[in-house]
């Protein structure tokens, strides 16, 4: 009975706490929308603007040409991003002019340039001796785009932030404001309170992740075949795992402000090492080792597995779940032995 009373009180507190609602739901949603559009736009450009000098070039679907009289105007248009890239056909060379700052898109532009040169050769009756046929395969057999990969990563980041901040912001504030000290003067068992706190945070995280997932699917029109059992168990275990990390931070922090600052710093650094925004494979070996020592990479991989985007062996998935549940043990240890409520 006391457990449910505590749970109800903590739930109402969470619903009324606008800051908590902001960081658990609205902030991840803003990040999802910004990153979803910023990082997916270049990979799915419907029309590419090409500046060209010299003879006319063959028409290709999805390409708009803009003619320039000289090379210097063409280069200026590329550098000032008025056009995506440039082409000039001179003799036997089709020169592809690229803006070096467009690192995300340049490979795509080079492939378009190669297609155009192939079309020019075919028009001149020159057909390649060796043809290449590209066949794309995927783990699930389905057609996924960059966003399909990005969204599970952002969900993993959200679990990470909610899990850690629930301890370093939520619990630390209750400690600092002496709320817990007052509670212990009442006949409320500490374990009723702690149990209710953990339960409320886990449910809050699950609901916010589900809502975020649903909104992402609606806004970006992506499709997933989710194994709901594995998805649920992953969200729950990852939340415990991250709460465990939050508990460690809390144990070393004198107050809520310091705990929040440390959590923010860790969150920001982990964002870049999570493999969400750029693949870990492109990092230098030293940074790859750093990335693989952080839990977020594994939560991201497990989330991609649970949403059927990427393969993973069942054993590995459940091993990650088990490690995350170790976080739960850390939370309990922190509550029971070392955590100072005064």
């Amino acid at each position: 009975m006391k457990f449910w009373t505590n749970l109800w009180a903590l739930t109402l507190n969470a619903l009324r706490d606008k800051t908590s609602t902001f960081f658990n739901f609205i902030f991840p949603l803003i990040i999802l929308i910004i990153f979803g559009y910023v990082f997916s736009g270049t990979y799915s450009q419907s029309t590419v603007k090409i500046a060209f000098v010299g003879p006319k070039l063959p028409e290709i679907e999805g390409v708009n040409y803009e003619e320039f009289q000289n090379l210097s105007d063409l280069k200026k248009a590329i550098l000032t991003q008025k056009d995506d890239f440039g082409l000039s056909l001179s003799g036997k060379t089709l020169r592809i002019y690229l803006n070096p700052s467009n690192m995300q898109s340049n490979d795509y532009y080079i492939s378009i340039g190669k297609r155009i040169s192939k079309k020019i050769n075919e028009a001149n009756g020159i057909v390649s001796m060796i043809n290449v046929k590209r066949t794309e395969v995927s783990f699930s057999g389905k057609k996924f785009n960059y966003l399909n990969n990005l969204i599970p990563g952002i969900l993993a980041l959200s679990i990470f932030s909610v899990g850690i901040f629930s301890m370093t912001a939520g619990l630390a504030h209750l400690r600092d404001k002496k709320v817990m000290k007052k509670l212990w003067t009442t006949p409320i068992s500490r374990w009723h309170f702690y149990g209710a706190f953990i339960f409320e945070k886990v449910i809050e995280t699950y609901i916010s992740i589900l809502a975020l997932f649903g909104i992402a699917v609606m806004i970006f029109g992506v499709y997933y075949t989710v194994d709901w059992f594995e998805f649920t168990i992953l969200v729950l275990s990852a939340t415990f795992g991250m709460m465990g990390i939050g508990m460690i931070i809390l144990l070393f922090s004198p107050n809520a402000k310091v705990a929040s600052e440390i959590s923010s710093a860790i969150y920001t650094v982990m964002m870049f090492f999570s493999g969400v925004y750029f693949p870990i494979k492109i990092m230098p070996p030293v940074l790859q080792r750093v990335a693989y020592s952080l839990p977020l990479v594994y939560i991201t991989d497990a989330m991609k597995y649970a949403t059927n985007i990427a393969p993973m062996s069942r054993i590995r998935f459940y091993f990650i779940i088990a490690i995350m549940f170790v976080g739960f043990v850390l939370v309990l240890m922190g509550f029971s032995k070392v955590f100072k409520s005064e």
């Binding site: 002019y97 803006n99 020019i120």
Partner: peptide, 17 residues
């Protein structure tokens, strides 16, 4: 192409502005 005597093949080359 070279060995077949085809000399007017267009080859793409990349240049970073």
């Amino acid at each position: 192409m070279k060995h077949s005597g085809v000399t007017n093949i267009v080859i793409p080359e990349t240049e970073y502005v």
